[in-house]
Design a protein around this nucleic acid. Sequence first.
DNA 1: ATGATTTCTTGATTGAAATCAAGGGACCTG
DNA 2: CAGGTCCCTTGATTTCAATCAAGAAATCAT
Lengths: 193, 193
Amino acid sequence: MNDSLLLTEFRRVVEFMDQDFLKLAPLFEKIQVKKNEHLFKAGDISRKVYFIEKGCLRQYLTNSNGEERNIYFKVESGWCSELVSFLNNTPTDLNLQALEDSELWTINQKNWIYAVTHIAPFTMYFIKAQQETNYKLKKRLGEATIETPEEKYTRFLEEEPRLLMRLPLFQVAAYLGMTPETLSRVRKKIGSK
Amino acid sequence: MNDSLLLTEFRRVVEFMDQDFLKLAPLFEKIQVKKNEHLFKAGDISRKVYFIEKGCLRQYLTNSNGEERNIYFKVESGWCSELVSFLNNTPTDLNLQALEDSELWTINQKNWIYAVTHIAPFTMYFIKAQQETNYKLKKRLGEATIETPEEKYTRFLEEEPRLLMRLPLFQVAAYLGMTPETLSRVRKKIGSK
DNA sequence: ATGATTTCTTGATTGAAATCAAGGGACCTG
DNA sequence: CAGGTCCCTTGATTTCAATCAAGAAATCAT
């Protein structure tokens, strides 16, 4: 049990007893998804919360011209969800897609509500993990409009070197908010320093 | 009690009994802050969570050139905090400042942790409210790099007309990620339609 | 393997927002 | 209410990233 990715992730953030995990684990179900498959699309209601055992997912936004912006990438030990939609049964404006063949733990609404109301360390884990996400989003929102393309790429290179190697560059460009051409030129310039 | 802004806000999101509120209310303390006063600055550790009874606050990010980007504005019934810093006693990179003379309810770390571990409806309120914030941040992050200045302003005008009237325009510009000059030109153009 | 599709790079050009500059107006503050 | 600061607008110019275009490289499917 101690080698479970899920338990390791809980313990990264809070104290989590074996007995709590024994209550929690059966609430999850494992699924396989293929590369490019969508877990939900804009307009859908999100019915699950996902934990990545293996693979890589992106959440993204599309505008009326069909252009895409990636909100985040998540890999092993990451959570993907749209809880406003999930908890209120309302459609979401965002999309969630696998970028690699992936293996996910899923939990449905009934089980998630049970867990968050009956398994105290899960509740606390969830609150703290959400705050981490929240803080990162706030910083990135500021950076998105204040940084130059070169600064954005340099930051990504420093903060997420493994992600950079794992992802196609056009997806990175859609995350950093620039065209693939601009990213290519920035990389050329940085590389020569 | 039913006319308390705080209780009304809880009841907007979850069921909240009078008796729960009686336990919760004494954990808060009211303070007054003057216009332009900072609640915390980049490098500080955030020691409080704030609920706005009256007034207006902004959270913002500064870069090395001294340029600012506003992450959000909050008015009456809004919460301001930096929980990663608050819970882990680590410095934050963000700033929180009053834009008007304001009246705030504050809760300290000890009391907040008591509330979130002992007052179940507060916990659930908190989780749901955080998710709303989270969802808004994700959408805005995507929009920040995909929308034109004109689209950003139009969205703000439609979604936050009261905020627009309440705030100086250079603060709105720092929120929408454009210069005051550009905002001025966009407004001139839109106004004539 | 091989052809087809997608992705990445590079170059030329365009265009939109930033910057620079300055005048008028609003609002504190004593 | 008078002076000074800050804010907003408008104009002229510059700059940087987007767009348009095309060829090379990599990946995928059969």
